[in-house]
Design a protein around this nucleic acid. Structure first.
Lengths: 229, 229
DNA sequence: AGGGGCTTGTGAGAACAGTCACAAAGTCCG
DNA sequence: CGGACTTTGTGACTGTTCTCACAAGCCCCT
């Protein structure tokens, strides 16, 4: 029995690790701080301190009681746990407004994600260069994935094409997909799909906004009625 | 006591309503289908049927046993619950790559979200026109929010400016913010902030990808050792 | 009018996530 | 060297979300 994963890391924790990572980078690069307490990290990450400690405890006991966590060491551990000690070759499919913005977005490349190839089906863009990379035809996908060792696919197509593109990615052996198209894609469970959906987010905001307004309106009505209590 | 909210709708449910909404629109517009079962809706939305039923039950009893849900009626109820029967005026702050892409992104406008104003601080873009709208200076924010009745703010600035912009939005009376900047913003609890973060998503994918590879490697090692069982 | 066949709505329980509070373990200072 | 102080790591609790399974309700056919 080689290296048994000490405890399985809850998904909710995994989703917060990148936030801690960024906060720690700010501390290290910005102020050159050497130690950080769960309290301070919690403030930076916008969560509560107990949660930070519990999250970090899944990675192991990397803190020192009475002192806090060593920033550099924690940075290294989180980086390692997230698999960011290596580079991940990324392909973007769909070179419309969004695809273009993604291709030239810096935050994308900064942390070990290398955009290796762009794909589209439109003859008007296939062959052109975007952000220093040639746009290839979608039919080249499988070959390119093999050649370039692409491990992450980013779908930035219109919703109608997303499912097909997702299947092609899966067929080419890509196991991690980030879907920007506003539609659900169904794939076998061995492929991890995450969704980033603008209009969904706006609609959720709308729900809360509407609720606030509804309450305000009700309160207003109550006041007019002069209802006591 | 006027209209007591029958049951509070769980946040997890709210987050799925937009997905159901989209699936229903596909059914209605695409195939003109009149009824839908929880089973079918679940397939379209990529969740399980019991969850669909429970989610919808929070809105009221809008289904018919033995038949399913009336597509149009359900569409209306979800639209109403999400507060999408009215238009929401939106402002985008930060007109870089991402801001531009957002300003011209169609999915944005389609469902009752109207982009009313764009803001930046860079003299090189202030005064120019993007997607048919003039880019105004951030200092005009408060006035514009009042004049245009802006209720949703979208932050598309670099991370360093996000907190300040968020505070300005809050100060101007905006209660709903969608933050694309890769940083946490802290605001009073009466402001709803949602975060869309590209690199966080990629890092989460990296975690799972790395895990899969680690397992594959371990299995490979086991095979080489000829370990039985 | 009654029975068979579907599909909803929901109670009960399991799984997961978040919070609290405190013992354990370290530092620091006199 | 000992005691005050700080901060971690975690057990126990609470709250939320998911899943299962089935009674209740409705349609349709004969």
């Amino acid at each position: 029995m080689a290296s048994m994963p000490s405890r399985p890391i809850p998904e909710a924790t995994v989703a917060r690790l990148p936030v801690y990572l960024r906060s720690l980078l700010d501390l290290a690069e910005g102020r050159g701080q050497l130690n950080v307490s769960s309290e301070e990290l919690a403030n930076l990450a916008g969560v509560n301190a107990a949660k930070v400690r519990k999250d970090l405890s899944y990675l192991g006991s990397y803190g020192t009681r009475g002192v806090g966590y060593d920033v550099e060491y924690l940075l290294y551990q989180i980086t390692r746990e997230l698999g960011l000690t290596q580079d991940w070759p990324v392909a973007i499919i769909g070179v419309g407004n969004l695809g273009r913005a993604l291709a030239s977005y810096k935050g994308f490349t900064e942390r070990g994600f290398r955009i290796m190839a762009l794909f589209d089906v439109d003859d008007k863009v296939v062959g052109s260069t975007v952000g220093g990379l040639p746009v290839r035809h979608l039919d080249d996908l499988k070959d390119a994935v093999t050649e370039e060792g692409i491990s992450i696919g980013v779908i930035a197509t219109p919703p109608g094409s997303a499912q097909e593109v997702a299947e092609r990615l899966a067929d080419a052996g890509v196991k991690s997909i980030l879907n920007f198209a506003p539609t659900v894609v169904n794939l076998p469970p061995d492929v991890t799909v995450r969704k980033v959906d603008l209009s969904t987010e706006l609609q959720i905001l709308s729900f809360f906004q509407q609720r606030v307004q509804a309450i305000a309106t009700a309160r207003e009505a109550n006041r007019r009625l002069g209802a006591g209590r």
